[in-house]
């Protein structure tokens, strides 16, 4: 059931990925870039917030547990700033723990992606999520 996802799916997209693991960050960056996105990365929530302010991304993907400022802190900052409160943020974590999805959504995350970030699963899930967001869906190059 692999869908053929167009290589320019995310053309013109600016995406910020925040994760304290460099490897994850690199994998996400390569995959997203492969589909045409401009990717900015950061290893903690505080720096990530600064990057978001500058880059004004269409989408933010953030790990939950990080040093300095974690994913929960970042979402709180974003949701309390009117300028960025509308940017969809997708949570990213190592393992789908029972109950995490509810908590993440309750805290303002748009949705939830689990590691490992393999090309197929990551893109498949991401596409499903993006299709659910009307203001983003029409920017997809399908």
């Amino acid at each position: 059931m692999l869908k053929i996802i167009p290589g320019n799916l995310l053309k013109d997209w600016v995406v910020v990925v925040v994760d304290d693991e460099d490897d994850s960050l690199t994998v996400a960056e390569i995959i997203l870039m492969e589909y045409g996105a401009t990717v900015h990365t950061s290893t903690n929530g505080k720096e990530g917030f600064e990057i978001i302010k500058k880059a004004k991304p269409r989408l933010v993907i953030s790990d939950l547990s990080m040093p300095i400022l974690d994913g929960w802190g970042l979402i709180s900052l974003l949701k309390h700033d009117r300028a960025y409160s509308e940017i969809p943020v997708i949570a990213l974590t190592a393992h789908a723990m029972i109950g995490d999805r509810e908590r993440a959504i309750a805290n303002g995350f748009h949705n939830y992606l689990t590691k490992p970030l393999t090309v197929d699963s990551f893109m498949d899930n991401l596409l499903n999520l993006l299709l659910d967001i009307p203001e983003l869906a029409h920017h997809l190059h399908l």
Partner: peptide, 9 residues
Amino acid sequence: NAILGFSSI
């Protein structure tokens, strides 16, 4: 996760 991510890439 890193191994899987990179191998998939």
